[in-house]
Measured scan of single mutants.
Amino acid sequence: NQESVVAAVLIPINTALTVGMMTTRVVSPTGIPAEDIPRLISMQVNQVVPMGTTLMPDMVKGYAP
């Protein structure tokens, strides 16, 4: 099972992602793959992401799977 990126904290809208904001977990449905965390650093979320929420591609500005 592939791990997906999950919010480790509440991430406010338009916040640039940092390593500490993200964790990984096997979830269903799957979100952004864990191995993409290095690509996500400094990208901004386009909505509020509650802690424990799986990051989906459409939540991150400029992210393309």
Rank of each mutant, 00 (worst) to 15 (best):
I32S: 02
A34W: 04
P29I: 08
G31L: 02
V9H: 14
V26A: 12
M21K: 06
L55E: 01
P57G: 15
Y63S: 04
V49K: 01
R25N: 15
G52N: 14
T54Q: 06
P29K: 07
Y63C: 04
V5G: 00
E35A: 06
V26G: 07
I37K: 08
T18H: 09
V60S: 01
T54N: 02
M22H: 01
S42H: 15
M56N: 10
A8S: 11
A7W: 02
I11E: 00
M51Y: 12
I13P: 13
T54Y: 04
K61I: 09
D36L: 14
D36V: 11
V9D: 06
V9M: 13
D58G: 13
M56Q: 10
V48F: 15
A16D: 14
L17Q: 00
G20K: 14
A8I: 05
N46I: 12
V27W: 02
Q2G: 15
G31W: 02
L10V: 12
T53F: 08
L55T: 01
N46K: 10
L40A: 01
T30W: 14
A7N: 01
L40C: 04
T30R: 03
I37H: 04
N14P: 01
T23D: 13
D58M: 13
A16K: 07
M56E: 05
I32Y: 03
T54L: 07
N1P: 10
T24M: 07
S28A: 14
A16F: 14
P50D: 15
P12L: 06
I11K: 00
D58L: 08
N14Q: 14
I13Q: 11
L55W: 00
T53K: 11
G20Q: 11
P50R: 09
S4K: 02
T15M: 09
L40P: 00
M59S: 04
T54P: 11
G20V: 08
T53C: 03
S28H: 06
A7M: 02
M21H: 11
T30Q: 13
T15P: 00
A7E: 00
M43N: 07
Y63A: 04
A64H: 12
A8G: 09
I11V: 06
M59W: 04
M22S: 01
V27G: 04
Q47K: 11
L10N: 07
T53L: 05
T23V: 10
L10T: 09
N14I: 02
V27F: 02
V27P: 01
Q47E: 11
P57D: 08
E3N: 03
